[in-house]
């Protein structure tokens, strides 16, 4: 891990003002910001851990916890909101037994929300990993969940 972090830092010429892009690269590499990676960053870039954690908790793009295999992202932008996104989010929270922002213990599912994906015409939108599902209803959401192996309440 130390080596990986070092090579990312070098890519930015060990320049402290690039700390946010460096964190973004670390996040992309590991899918989240592992503690050891942040320790390595602190040692190698010469910035205190307090500053790193200040940044990592301020910006939404960063996560200190690992993410699930399936990342479900519900758009909560205004357009999706007035078209019923809250119902979809409620349904997902209930069915996956997760709150928005949480990841299931078995690291299968992460439930997240985002404010506008720029595809408002298709609202409400659910993105699973990088795949967009538009004009969602509860029935369609149930199908998507079944497709990724989640347990959905039986029909009959």
């Amino acid at each position: 891990m130390e080596e990986k972090v070092k090579s990312i830092i070098e890519k930015y010429g060990s320049d402290k003002s690039f700390i946010i892009p460096i964190l973004q690269d670390i996040q992309r590499e590991f899918n989240y910001l592992p503690r050891e990676a942040l320790d390595a960053l602190s040692r190698n870039l010469g910035v205190p851990p307090s500053l790193i954690y200040h940044l990592a908790t301020f910006y939404r793009a960063f996560s200190l916890n690992p993410k699930g295999k399936y990342r479900l992202n519900v758009c909560m932008g205004t357009a999706c909101h007035v078209r019923g996104a809250p119902q979809i989010a409620d349904y997902l929270e209930r069915t996956l037994d997760l709150k928005a922002g949480e990841t299931s213990k078995n690291l299968e599912y992460s439930l997240e929300t985002v404010n506008c994906l720029g595809a408002c015409a298709l609202g409400p939108i659910l993105v699973v990993n990088d795949e967009y599902h538009g004009q969602m209803t509860i029935a369609k959401t149930a199908k998507v969940l079944e497709g990724i192996g989640a347990k959905v309440e039986a029909d009959e």
Binding site: M76, G77, T78, A79, C80, N115, C116, G118, A119, C120
Partner: peptide
């Protein structure tokens, strides 16, 4: 472009 529901800058 942080306004949730606007996407012209993106486009």
């Amino acid at each position: 472009e942080g306004d949730p529901g606007a996407y012209m800058d993106r486009s």
